[in-house]
């Protein structure tokens, strides 16, 4: 009899939990939800913490997962702000419209994308064309670039990453070789390049440089030239990225559903303020330039 009672109570409790889980989405808290780009997640976390230190009543939850994940979450109305290290593509915009979501793109930082190789390789410079050929699987041995006779092991991100898409569309300009190892996050690329003496990878510059501008151990950052006749520039120098001399730089975005208002707008204004931009710089990225600031003024996001 006792056993029966326990089973009965157990069954009822289980059904109650199931029902509660189904209805869980109704009560939404007052916290600002931010999700998306893994390149941006640490920086936005720092911005959120600084903001919460000033505005004690506001709470902000920042998660990663990749730009595509953040954009999908915004389209499905599961996040307030989507971090994305690339612009939205046509089919995503169409999808959003179909669901009554009006995405607004807000650039808030500049990122130099670094091409990194293992420190044992004696190569310091590459052209965009050479990098593209390596990632397409046309150049497959380091000797073709004047290095040792070793095969090239190509590391990249997975397709949910904005860096994956940006790098493919702006540097490789073709499909990646299907020999590329698709790593689950920037940290794994950096880890692989460190331990594999034939490795090449790419990463946001903020990920491998600390506050004092020191590069992570056992990694060389490649100086990149636009083509054979141009000079190669290092992304480690702020001027090179800000001036656009370093050829692989991009704007980092946040997307909102419709023009941001209220507490979300206030947070975005904080990010764009001199104080917020200082946090951006401390995280290893570059402040948004005059061109984008003008654009943001026209949009009415800043005054």
């Amino acid at each position: 009899m006792k056993f029966g009672k326990i089973m009965l109570i157990g069954t009822i409790a289980l059904s109650a939990i199931l029902f509660a889980a189904c209805g869980g989405r109704a009560n939404r808290s007052n916290a600002i939800q931010i999700s998306g780009s893994d390149s941006e997640v640490n920086m936005v976390q720092n911005l959120a913490e600084a903001y919460m230190a000033i505005n004690k009543e506001q709470s902000i939850a920042v998660t990663g997962g990749g730009s595509g994940t953040g954009i999908a979450a915004m389209i499905n109305r599961q996040t307030d702000i989507a971090n994305s290290s690339r612009a939205m593509n046509a089919s995503e915009i169409q999808q959003a419209r179909d669901r009554g979501v009006e995405p607004v793109a807000i650039p808030f930082a500049i990122d130099g994308l670094a091409v990194i190789i293992n420190h044992e390789l004696p190569i310091t410079e590459m052209t965009i064309d050479q990098i593209s050929k390596i990632y397409q699987g046309i150049i497959t041995n380091w000797s073709e670039l004047g290095g040792p006779d070793l095969p090239i092991t190509v590391y990249g991100r997975q397709s949910n990453s904005g860096t994956y898409v940006y790098f493919r569309d702006h540097v490789v300009k073709a499909d990646y070789t299907n020999n590329m190892r698709n790593m689950n996050g920037t940290a794994q690329i950096v880890e692989a390049v460190r331990s594999d003496r034939t490795a090449i990878g790419y990463t946001g510059i903020g990920y491998i440089v600390d506050k004092d501008g020191k590069v992570a151990d056992r990694i060389s950052v490649i100086n990149v030239a636009l083509d054979e006749n141009s000079t190669a520039f290092s992304p480690l120098l702020k001027e090179n990225v800000e001036s656009g001399d370093y050829p692989i730089s991009r704007a980092l975005y946040q997307f909102t559903n419709g023009m941001p208002e209220g507490r979300i707008l206030e947070f975005i204004r904080f990010e764009l303020s001199p104080e917020g931009q200082q946090i951006v710089a401390n995280a290893g990225y570059y402040p948004i330039g005059e061109k984008y600031l003008q654009q943001l003024k026209e949009m009415g996001i800043i005054e």
Partner: peptide
């Protein structure tokens, strides 16, 4: 890898 990012 892909289900998280795919548009519905």
């Amino acid at each position: 890898i892909e289900l998280g990012e795919v548009p519905y």
